[in-house]
Amino acid sequence: MSDKKTIPNASIGSSAENSYKKPETTRRSFLSWLTVGWAAYIGVTGGFFTVIIRFLFPNVLFEPPQTFKIGYPEDFSSNSVDIKYKKQFNAWVVRDEESIFALSTVCTHLGCTPNWLPVESKFKCPCHGSGFRMTGIHFEGPAPRPLERFKISLANDGQILVDKTKSYKWEKGEWENPESFLKV
């Protein structure tokens, strides 16, 4: 009998007399401790899995630089697409009548790299046939939206600077943004 007295004492941490006189309090507080225990268990397990998921996201990426210079505005003739920077930086430099802008080479459908077809004057994606005009506007195939434009500006030395960390989407009206093109 004395055993019965001490065991709940230890587990609930209340005074010996109390628990002995009111056994239902013991049960109730035991249940509440159980709840706390389970809550703690779920919390810790959840936290553990959250940390595991966070583990999948690297902090440091070993990818090429996102900002690069592409030369002077005069280097680009008007109404032409420069494909020099496609290979290294994944960007086309396009000059139309009044501006120069940098288009992303990532097809907005599934991320293939379209090809510039000068004769038909369009970008054509080999994967699923999306077509984009020189401006980057989509007009055929499954692409849901135009190509993205990168931030473009003039550096201090007069060269054009393309910053890939900022991109501008047509469907959000961001091509109006003066950072998305360079007036010439």
Binding site: T113, N115, P126, C127
Partner: peptide
């Protein structure tokens, strides 16, 4: 592998 040129068709 060449990330810059997508074979046509892919």
């Amino acid at each position: 592998a060449n990330p810059a040129s997508t074979p046509n068709p892919s």
